[in-house]
Design a binder for these strands. Structure first.
Lengths: 228, 228
DNA sequence: CGGCCACTTGATCCGACTCAACCTGCGTGG
DNA sequence: CCACGCAGGTTGAGTCGGATCAAGTGGCCG
């Protein structure tokens, strides 16, 4: 039934790590001793897989990352998108619980988990900061459960556009760094429903679709009402 | 549309905190200096509300607690049930993000948040333990997002029964400490769909319903397959 | 220029919701 | 002790929102 999602097939040769370099960057303002290594991924490239060792913590520099779970038959639920400035990949235990992939060409900084862990055991405020990051993700997940469990397609789409706008700077002009299918798998819908919803917003003058990836929020107030 | 949920009205006089006493109980095995105060709540009684100060952290002794979000029109999403042994109520920041209520007569231990916070700043392993609790809740939320976004009604119900059985001891005989409406609001369904689903499991010989609150998992393997 | 991929749009279908009746057990008051 | 009311649960009939299946359309890359 809901089978859609997930390209099988082997990864095209084009999709390989694209660059590698040393860019010093502090994980926390207060602890400049931890540095990140810069790394790039092409569109749809896997950063880590569910069940793999979680050796690194990541910070998005540019692009965007999806983290998701898949069922055996291919149904996929994206738990969240990680946008520039966001950290992701630090999960409880030694194994990743989600798969992470770049939704578009993406640059990240990597931090060794072992370093971060040992920092957390030495530095109380760093430990607290890590805890707060996890708590922030939990907060997002709680909001998203309400959306997935109880909101209509239109409400989900409105909430999505508001969320993206807010996280991308709140300018009202949103450049979506992901496909319709990604949006659908994030919102618990099909890509057709996402497409139709955007078209309806456009027809009602609520948004303007410059092209599939660029949306102007014309009546943001209306969207916020729809989103609840 | 989905309006169901939530009894308005003032709380009946019967629903008042029912007992109060001093029961020393350590929050962490390693830190016996932090003690909990015992407290009881009647069925449907609010423990704390969304937006209130989170002054306490709670541990369920007996009964069960639901934590949820509600929309203006009454649509409700229960994020999780807290069963005996579980901690709940420690959230990021100073305000609760969810409402907590007893789903049935419930006894809890209360811990002062300020004590726990200060412990976390002194004791690295306690801080880590708190972090792990939050991470555990996040893990649950991620699984639940997959359920809410992508699973069918039957799959949700199967997953629910398996989850409850596991968390209540894995005996295969489940005493549900919540109503059909609570289950529906947890699974993103209506109570009628929950009821019908249980009846169908019964008709297929997968479970036996002793009464509405007592379910025997006759073919647990089958349920696990359904749940994915 | 041709093929492909992402997206859009249309037609139809179906799983879960809505509305409604009824059943059952329990607490309350006569 | 029984009659009643009520809350929670079950079951049935009909509807509908979003999924599925199926054509297009347009832009981009080779």
């Amino acid at each position: 039934m809901f089978i859609q999602t997930v390209a099988p097939s082997t990864r095209p040769a084009a999709l390989r790590p694209q660059s590698f370099g040393q860019t010093p960057a502090p994980l926390f303002a207060s602890t400049p001793e931890i540095l990140g290594t810069s790394f790039s991924y092409g569109r749809d490239e896997e950063i880590y897989g569910e069940g793999e060792d979680n050796e690194f913590v990541y910070k998005v520099v540019s692009g965007a990352v999806r983290t998701y779970k898949v069922m055996r038959d291919g149904r996929r639920q994206i738990g969240g998108f990680h946008l520039p400035g966001d950290y992701f990949g630090f999960e409880l235990g030694t194994r990743h619980l989600l798969t992470a992939e770049a939704t578009t060409d993406t640059k990240v900084l990597l931090f060794k988990r072992s370093q971060i862990e040992s920092l957390a055991t030495r530095d109380v405020s760093a430990a607290r900061e890590l805890w707060l990051m996890t708590a922030g993700q939990l907060r997002h997940a709680e909001d998203h459960m309400l959306l997935l469990g109880r909101k209509t397609a239109t409400e989900r789409l409105a909430a999505f556009l508001i969320e993206m706008d807010k996280r991308l700077g709140g300018t009202g002009v949103v450049e979506l760094p992901m496909s319709r299918r990604d949006i659908a798998d994030y919102l618990g819908l099909t890509l057709e429903t996402v497409s139709r919803g955007f078209s309806q917003f456009q027809a009602s003058g609520i948004v303007q679709l410059i092209d599939a990836r660029h949306v102007v929020l014309v009546k943001r107030r209306k969207l916020e009402e729809d989103a609840e």
